[in-house]
């Protein structure tokens, strides 16, 4: 088995179809398309875009963003995606995970989790706080000793949910998720490397594949998360843009550091 390298594409980063073809040809193991600001008027263009991308690549393709109904998921799959990413839609309506598994198969259902460290004591919401599948897992920050927990955020990171990310990952698996796409909001965009604590906690709590995301600024960051955790794949965007590395360059660096990759 190998560790996957996945390329994430968000809109406004050039011609997505041309980029997708390039990354597929260069040896990316999987392509993830997240339309973070998916709005109704964009849905149709997204379908066309998904179709365009799916036509030129021959690697697995996950598409997410704004999925809240079975119809949304079906449209994405019928446009040529292999898997559907669902985030806010799953928190708001967890049974949709089970519905999607039933109709499309578990392997199509990617539950995306945006997690952020919360240093406040979790509010006691009584029995109603179990939305994520139990009370938050309290952790102690290395160095500072501060207590914190990983809170799930929705709506592109704008809204805290009070749901614990580790518990939610476990619940999502029970409901029918085939994969967890785990993004550290603390690290996203920082290029400080992946959040190993978050990644390790979630990977160890579930038995489905987990993809780490957020914070990758250098190929060494990818090697680092593979070495520090049992994560199945690492997702990055910006490092693949640099001609300096490219997908195959990144994978060669991983191989040289002893990470099993497809080359």
């Amino acid at each position: 088995m190998v560790k996957g390298t996945r390329f994430v594409e968000i809109r406004d980063a050039g011609d997505p179809v041309a980029l997708a073809r390039r990354y597929s040809d260069e040896g990316a193991d999987e392509l993830v398309f997240l339309d973070i600001t998916a709005s109704d008027e964009r849905r149709k263009t997204i379908r066309e875009l998904v179709r365009g991308v799916a036509s030129v690549i021959d690697i697995p393709f996950t598409v997410g963003g704004g999925v809240s109904t079975m119809e949304d998921a079906r449209n994405i799959l019928l446009s040529g995606a292999d898997k559907v990413g669902i985030n806010t839609g799953a928190i708001n309506n967890p049974p949709i995970i089970t519905e999607m598994m039933g109709l499309f198969g578990r392997q199509c259902v990617v539950v995306a989790i945006d997690a952020k460290r919360n240093y406040a004591e979790p509010a006691d919401r009584g029995s109603g706080s179990g939305g994520g599948g139990g009370p938050p897992v309290m952790l102690e920050e290395e160095g500072s000793g501060r207590r914190f927990w990983f809170e799930v955020h929705t709506y592109g990171g704008k809204k805290g949910t009070g749901v614990d990310a580790i518990r939610w990952a476990q619940r999502a698996q029970r409901l029918g998720a085939g994969e967890i796409l785990l993004t550290s909001m603390d690290r996203d965009g920082t290029k400080d490397g992946y959040d190993h604590e978050l990644t390790k906690r979630v990977v160890d709590a579930v038995s489905i594949p987990v993809i780490a995301s957020g914070g990758c600024g250098h190929p060494d960051d990818m090697a680092g998360v593979f070495e520090a955790t049992d994560v199945d794949a690492a997702l990055a965007a910006s490092i693949f843009h640099y001609q300096e590395y490219g997908v195959s360059g990144v994978k060669r660096i991983l191989r040289d550091r002893g990470v099993p990759v497809r080359l």
Binding site: M1, V2, G4, D29, P60, R106, Q107, G178, E179, S207, I208, P209, D232, A233, R262
Partner: peptide, 13 residues
């Protein structure tokens, strides 16, 4: 077998 991550999704040789 349940010793594996199931569904198994990934590249293998």
């Amino acid at each position: 077998p349940d010793t594996m991550k199931v569904p198994h999704m990934g590249w293998n040789s």
